[in-house]
Write a protein that binds this DNA or RNA. Sequence first.
DNA 1: TATTACTGACTGACTGGTCAGTTATTACGA
DNA 2: TCGTAATAACTGACCAGTCAGTCAGTAATA
Lengths: 216, 216
Amino acid sequence: MPQRQPKWRRKPGERPRQILRAALEVFGETGVASARLDEIADRAGVSKGTIYLYFANKEELFRQAIRHALAPVQATQDPPAAGSPTRQLLDTISRQWVFLTSPDTITVSRLVQAEQWQFPELAELYATEVVSRFGEELRPIIRRGIDVGDFRDLDPSVAARMLTALAIQSALWRETGVPSSLARKNSEEVLRELTGFYLQAIASSNNASPQADGAL
Amino acid sequence: MPQRQPKWRRKPGERPRQILRAALEVFGETGVASARLDEIADRAGVSKGTIYLYFANKEELFRQAIRHALAPVQATQDPPAAGSPTRQLLDTISRQWVFLTSPDTITVSRLVQAEQWQFPELAELYATEVVSRFGEELRPIIRRGIDVGDFRDLDPSVAARMLTALAIQSALWRETGVPSSLARKNSEEVLRELTGFYLQAIASSNNASPQADGAL
DNA sequence: TATTACTGACTGACTGGTCAGTTATTACGA
DNA sequence: TCGTAATAACTGACCAGTCAGTCAGTAATA
């Protein structure tokens, strides 16, 4: 006689994670206002009431979901890459690209943009944890590249911001396959176009073609 | 004895415009789902019922509001600017920048991103009417610049897409003052940084510094 | 048996959409 | 030129559906 399975199990340790994951999914598909808590509960495999054991309300759940999704980038402390500035830059961009193109990050980027008036503190969090952090990684590399003469003389802050803007927008566009010129391209191709363009863009004239090829 | 003012006036010709304008405003502030039709009606100076005389439902109102806001760009037929490729490019970017940084366009850019799953046809419209159209203006100029030797040898399509991505993201970031490095900068400064960076980025080595200064 | 985790039916506030009724405007006859 | 009938434009109270949030009760676990 088979032992009767319990209808549900107590997993107080895992619940928050399960719920946050489902929440990000649903919020990402419909936006905050249209997201239904019953749907989130379903996907998390719990009942609606359980959500309220761990989160105060829908808004707070959203906040936590975003923060949770941004945790990975907060965790990374970049091992200062070795090699030439070009090499370092390439590695750094590549690492940032992996983060930016992950489904969760795409969702967060879109949601934060969309809800910036309802949740300005999340826009700020995103700016700090993603944009600023990326800048902090990029600037010293660019500066060194200028000193060494590999890159032309430009403002490292501006150059870093340009790259980040370019990377984020590329990542967002690639997801939708819109504009159509991106539809067929996979993530690696887009990254290659991006790095190809950017390295040329900042290369000094006496170093007009830093070899980016074969780098990935 | 003062003649009694009518409580309201019949303005069937203006109503749609009034409503669309109010709708874009409210949609932009709260997103589609949270926007209340009573609020839109208030700001348009009409009652809720009137909205339904001109639009089938909320979704359709949203669609029309976006299309309406994109009409200006559809109307412009660019007079093929005179001068060197650098000059032409500068003029074109400048014109596109004005469009991108207008409050309505900012709102549209944000809304289209946010609602791309609910309204994929609007994402496509935006891609066609903004991104593709910009590309069509930029590509021939870039191509000529390459032929003439002012710009280095790169793929005009990629170069155009990079510029558009950069411009859109810069416009969106500037609005919020986030990242904080953009908070104090006004539109003109951001445009100058953008063009400065980009012209350098695509300049050929034997033309390393096309004079962008004093251009605006 | 006590405690903790969880369920899901329920409630009440909210809002998209409707439509019977009202007001402005126009057309027309005297 | 004035009343008045006809029409088009508009209003706003109402209804029906939805969903965030509650909580009395139940199931799992210690």
